[in-house]
């Protein structure tokens, strides 16, 4: 298993942010070294330009897909339109598992498992945003800090037959054949990505009122059942 409890890491980071980020934010110098994994596609700092990926100056507070002059994936542009803004919480979730936060992103990066590494890289990037001292305190109420994702949620074995019934509600919009014009594809996702994404909606970390509402009424078992069903859909 690539990751164990991704959202619990995200949430732990969120709680830490409000509790006393100064001690937790990570080491920007270590982050500068780790950024070597990103620099093939992303530039940051004086004179940074868009390359394969957009430059990352002024990243904090920017809407996802919000940089003029860079051609984003439709998935990222869509999430920006729906209100996803880059801050410590959302970036932390994104670099932990890009596809689980943004369906259809072109960022071909597997994600950092280690919360400390993520904190270090974000500390480094924070140097290149406006007024970095304010960023840890920005919009603390927007952070998810009350939700509790039990560590065994990812261990639930979904019932694909139940998932097939529940999925009929999804297929009014999401196409069975995986087409993704206007509405993202949800077929053949790894189970973990699917479960994480649905809980991210349920906890309103991912924006989108329809999906927040749909995920909001699903139990952990129902989310697992849907993940089990869509995983194998042909």
């Amino acid at each position: 298993m690539r990751r164990f409890f991704p959202l619990s890491f995200v949430l732990a980071a969120g709680v830490a942010a409000t509790a006393g980020w100064a001690d937790q934010i990570g080491n920007a110098d270590t982050g500068a070294v780790l950024f070597g994994d990103c620099s093939g596609c992303h530039e940051v700092g004086a004179g940074a330009q868009n390359g394969i990926g957009p430059h990352l100056n002024g990243l904090f507070g920017r809407p996802a897909g919000g940089l003029d002059g860079y051609f984003y994936s439709s998935g990222l542009a869509r999430m920006g339109g729906e209100g996803l803004v880059w801050d410590l919480t959302t970036l932390n979730a994104y670099i932990e598992n890009p596809r689980a936060l943004v369906s259809g992103t072109r960022m071909s990066f597997g994600g950092w498992e280690d919360p400390q590494e993520r904190a270090d890289v974000l500390a480094y990037l924070r140097r290149y945003s406006d007024d970095p001292a304010n960023i840890p305190e920005a919009a603390p109420t927007a952070r998810v800090s009350e939700v509790d994702l039990a560590p065994d949620i990812l261990a639930i074995q979904g019932d694909p037959a139940y998932g097939e019934y529940l999925a009929s509600d999804c297929k009014t919009c999401h196409q069975q054949d995986g087409s993704d014009a206007g509405i993202p594809s949800i077929t053949r996702w790894p189970v973990e990505d699917f479960v994480v994404a649905m809980h991210a909606y349920k906890q309103k970390l991912r924006p989108h009122p329809v999906m927040q509402m749909q995920a909001g009424r699903l139990s952990d078992e129902e989310i697992a059942a849907l993940a089990a069903y869509f995983k194998d859909l042909e």
Binding site: R78, S168, T172, C173, Q176, A181, I183
Partner: peptide
Amino acid sequence: YEESLGWYAGITAD
């Protein structure tokens, strides 16, 4: 709006 186009394709396929 683009989502509504996606929905139309989805529901008619359904």
